[in-house]
Each structure stands twice: as C-alpha cells, then as structure tokens.
Design a protein around this nucleic acid. Structure first.
Lengths: 195, 195
DNA sequence: CCGAGATGTATGCAACGTCAACATAGCACA
DNA sequence: TGTGCTATGTTGACGTTGCATACATCTCGG
C-alpha cells in the first residue's frame, strides 16, 4: 500500500509516498527523519531532495495537510458555526484533534515554522477565517478581531496544556467536558465588576 | 564571568556553568547542543554527563529556571493578583515573557517533557497555584478549576500563536494591548444568549 | 600519606541532514 | 526510428549530534 511497486527505476509518486510515509511515522509516535522516510518509501536516502528542498519543506507539506484535516474536523459542513453551542463544539474538536494527533499538532504549531511557505501560511489562514466567519455571524457588531484571537487562543492553549500534561486529565470525554467548562466559566468574567 | 577560572583540573561549578552556558545559547537564538554547551564552558564534550543523565535532564534544569523566572515576572510581589486588572497584567506579562524568551518558552512548553522530573513538575505547579490563589481571592464561590484552566489557556494560547506568527503583530506594546483586548472581548460571550 | 570515590577526558559508534557527482528513464523533437 | 535533454533516483562522503565505554586525574577521609 504505502510502498508502491518499485520495479522501475523511477518511483512515479515519490512526493506523495514520502508525505504518506512521514505522516504514518509521525502518527505512530516515532520521530521521523528524512532518512527513515526514504527507507520507508523504499528509496535511497537522498531521493527526497528531488522533491523537498530540505527537511523543513517536508514538514511544511505535512503541516498543510494537518491544517486541512483540522479544518475538516472542526466544520463537518465546511461552513462557519451557526450557534454558540456549535462554536463551543469547534473548540472541543480542536482540542480533540490535538490530543489524537499530538505529533502532527506540535509540528503544525509548536515550532518555528517556515513563514515563507505560501501554501502553509494559506492553510493556517483558512482556519482563522473559519473562526472569523463564525463570529461575524454570531456576534455582529462586536470586535471580531479581539474575540477571534481570544477564542482561538483559548482552545489552542487548552490543547497545548493538555498535550504537555500540565492539566490533570483522563479520558477524551473528560477533556471535552473540560473544554466546555472552560467556555462556560468565562461567563464569570463577564458578570464580574468591570476591570 | 560565564567561564570560571579553569586553572584547576576540577571545574568546581560545572553544573551551574553548564546551565548558564545553555541558557545563554538558548537566549541568543542558536540551537543548543550538549557538545556546544560543553565547548562554551571550556570543558570536554562528555563532561556534562557527570552532571546530567542526558540532554533532557539539562533541558529540564533550564525549564525549571524558566518557570521560576516566569513566576517572578508575573507577580512582582510574589503574591496572587489583588484585582481583576492585576490579573489581566499577569496575562500581559506571561505573553511578554514568551515573546522575549521564545526559545526558553518553547523548551518549557512546546515539547514532550520529562514528567518524571520532580523539580520540573513542581516548578510548573507553582505557576498554576499562583493563578489558582488569585482566582480564589477574586471570584470566591465560583468554579476555580475551570476558570483557572480557561484563563491560563487563554494567555498560553496567545503566547504560542504570537510566537508562531499566526497573529499579525508589531511592537510589544501592540501585543500587550491585544492581550488586554482579548480579555475584554470575553465579556461579549458573557452577555450573549446562553449556550 | 594514601587509597577510594568523585570528577573530567579520550575515543568511538550509529544516526542524522546535506551536498556533489554520477546513473537512469522517459519525453521532445527530428 | 533515433538522439539528446531534463527530471528523477543513487552513491559516497562530510560534519554534526547524542551517547557509551574505558581511562586519567583530583580530593578528601582515615
């Protein structure tokens, strides 16, 4: 499956095969290296350099796929959230994604990344737009910029803190409940005396 | 300064010198390696292994110092926040720390860490306790757990998103203003229809 | 004063990312 | 049908990393 027939000198789908192999290793927990990826694709150690300038380029390709996947999981319909409850579930799905595919999530966010990679920047932007559209629909007339940042940061922070074991946790349902509780608790701020 | 007199065979303060050297490299942007750190401390490549079991142990030591530093910057007095405004400034300081010492912050959070390292776990816990104490004082009778998680996640997420360049940004004052705006915008949620 | 244990050193390994030089396959064009 | 160009894959090598083992040197308690 992952190893196309290698009876010809030319591989044919090397680029895709490399991404597949790298993603597979990433998901299975082992740290991926260019050499290991090449090995998995049944190809010489330096073959990847025909398709990726360097390791970072491969990582960006993985990140792009990650962003697309994440967006797909947030919004099953592809559109923005239609209710506040749905918005909260976006957050739940975001954190769930991070916990289910931790290595990929870290790769997408937890490191200095190539900001020159247009496709990668674009993919991240799509995610942000989905949230912005949702907020614009749900809270017309408010400061979307600030709210979008706050909510994204909230779920992003929850994801990372859970990932790092900084928050005590058990099952994935437990995590989901905590995400909802976090959203709910913010109302405490709203009804308290002004800053 | 960072290189104690090396006129004796035994270094004397090797452990501290190694941590200093590593921190210095980290702050100055260069990726630190055990070998490079040893070089900087004017010591053989394997000498660090007398003081740190492996690379991760050194990282944990750096992380511990980072947690202590961060806690000190959040609360200048050492105590919890006395007002909601002060709490917001905790958040501002948190994000500022992350942006001023990005490599250290990433080391503290942005990677799988050694949860077996007691000192490291403890240092992280101190941070969490500071927030919990503040909330207990400011909002008696609420669900501190959830609110603490939410607020920590908020600033943590803001820090990471800024670090990753996912949010457009300019000066550090700009960032501070955005953090305050993010806190403020959460009130929007509070006054909106129930979930 | 002397030997045991703490501390630092020398050497070497396997794996990594990367590069330059070379081999091969398939397509464009005659 | 043939010929050569270019994209693709291979080989071999360099310098780096983390780490382990065997060895040298110092310090201190008796």
């Amino acid at each position: 499956m992952s190893t196309p027939s290698r009876d010809t000198y030319h591989h044919g789908h090397l680029r895709a095969a490399l991404i597949d192999a790298a993603m597979e290793m990433l998901e299975s927990g082992e740290p991926f290296s260019l050499r290991a990826v090449a090995r998995q694709a049944n190809v010489s150690q330096t073959a990847p350099y025909r398709h990726f300038a360097d390791r970072e380029a491969l990582e960006s390709a993985l990140a792009v796929r990650g962003f697309r996947d994440l967006r797909g999981e947030l919004s099953l319909t592809g559109g923005p959230a239609a209710s506040e409850g749905e918005l909260v579930e976006f957050g739940v799905a975001y954190v769930a994604f991070a916990l289910r595919r931790p290595a990929l999530f870290r790769l997408m966010f937890g490191q200095e990344c190539d900001d020159q990679n247009d496709e990668r920047v674009l993919a991240a932007r799509e995610l942000r737009d989905l949230l912005a559209d949702s907020l614009q629909r749900l809270y017309p007339g408010t400061d979307h910029e600030a709210l979008a940042e706050a909510l994204w940061a909230l779920v992003h922070g929850l994801a990372f803190l859970h990932l790092d074991g900084k928050l005590p946790v058990a099952t994935s349902e437990d995590v989901a409940a905590r995400v909802r509780a976090a959203f709910g608790s913010l109302r405490t701020l709203g009804v308290s005396p002004a800053v």
